[in-house]
């Protein structure tokens, strides 16, 4: 009997659920009636014995009690197996969830690395073509994407698309080259005009200098006098004597002046 009692105790313990006073309070339970497990087991035994006593005879009663006991124990074991299975399944479930999480993490990591790689490739592409080349590369990329994205596009349409792109790029390049050539020509023309202006100014200055030099040479060269020799008063002059006297007086005055000035 003591074995059954222990078994019942164990069964009640397993069927009962554990809770704390604070959680009961949270549920609004203020007071509880406490019933001890031994008392519950004793009540179950008493109720079983009373039921069997009132309905069965002595031998039968023992047999039924044994059978019930056996059944009870079997059910209890079965319950224990189920519990065990449940815990195994839960373990398996947790393991599976853990694996799923790991797989998700791996997927996210792969996705990130793929994104990084794509960005790196895009950056490399954009670096590979800069300025006007980047524009062309973008146009080519757009066209190729349009062709690739339109599976039903015929070869003719694709050719037209590519041709249109090529013509657009080539004509644009030609236009740019032409503009650059014209700008270069304009610059050269400006430079040449400036040089011409400068040369003109220099020419004018040189001409002026030449004129000046010519004029200076003329002065330096001088104009010849009418006389090869010193003249003096003409002998045939009616006033020759008077003039000679006057010349002598002028000379004397100047000689005197020269002496005075040389003394100073």
């Amino acid at each position: 009997m003591s074995g059954l009692r222990e078994t019942l105790k164990e069964a009640v313990r397993q069927l009962a659920f554990r809770t704390s006073l604070s959680s009961l309070k949270k549920k609004g339970v203020q007071k509880v009636n406490v019933l001890g497990i031994d008392r519950i087991v004793a009540l179950i035994e008493a109720s079983v014995h009373r039921s069997l006593k009132s309905r069965l005879l002595g031998a039968d009663r023992e047999a039924v009690a044994e059978a019930t006991k056996a059944e009870f124990l079997r059910l209890l074991r079965s319950n224990e197996d189920l519990q065990r299975q449940k815990s195994e399944w839960e373990q398996q479930k947790e393991q599976a969830e853990e694996e799923i999480d790991q797989l998700r993490r791996d997927l996210a990591q792969h996705t990130r690395s793929l994104q990084n790689r794509l960005e790196q490739v895009e950056l490399e592409n954009s670096n590979r073509y800069d300025g006007e080349n980047a524009v062309i590369a973008r146009k080519v990329s757009d066209v190729m994407q349009a062709i690739a994205g339109n599976a039903g596009m015929s070869a003719k349409a694709a050719e037209e698309k590519v041709m249109e792109l090529v013509m657009d790029v080539v004509s644009g390049e030609r236009q740019d080259a032409e503009q650059a050539r014209r700008a270069l020509q304009d610059r050269e023309v400006d430079n040449l005009q400036r040089r011409i202006r400068k040369l003109n100014e220099t020419l004018q200055q040189t001409e002026q200098r030449l004129q000046h030099v010519a004029a200076t040479k003329n002065i330096e060269g001088g104009i010849s006098s009418l006389y090869r020799e010193v003249q003096g008063v003409s002998v045939g002059d009616a006033l020759a004597n008077k003039k000679s006297e006057l010349m002598a007086e002028i000379f004397k005055a100047n000689l005197e002046l020269q002496k005075k000035t040389s003394k100073r």
């Binding site: 010193v230 003096g232 008063v233 003039k243 000679s244 010349m247 002598a248 000379f251 100047n254 000689l255």
Partner: peptide, 10 residues
């Protein structure tokens, strides 16, 4: 009209 001699002296 000034004689050569006078010029020379000056």
């Amino acid at each position: 009209d000034m004689p050569a001699d006078f010029w020379e002296q000056l």
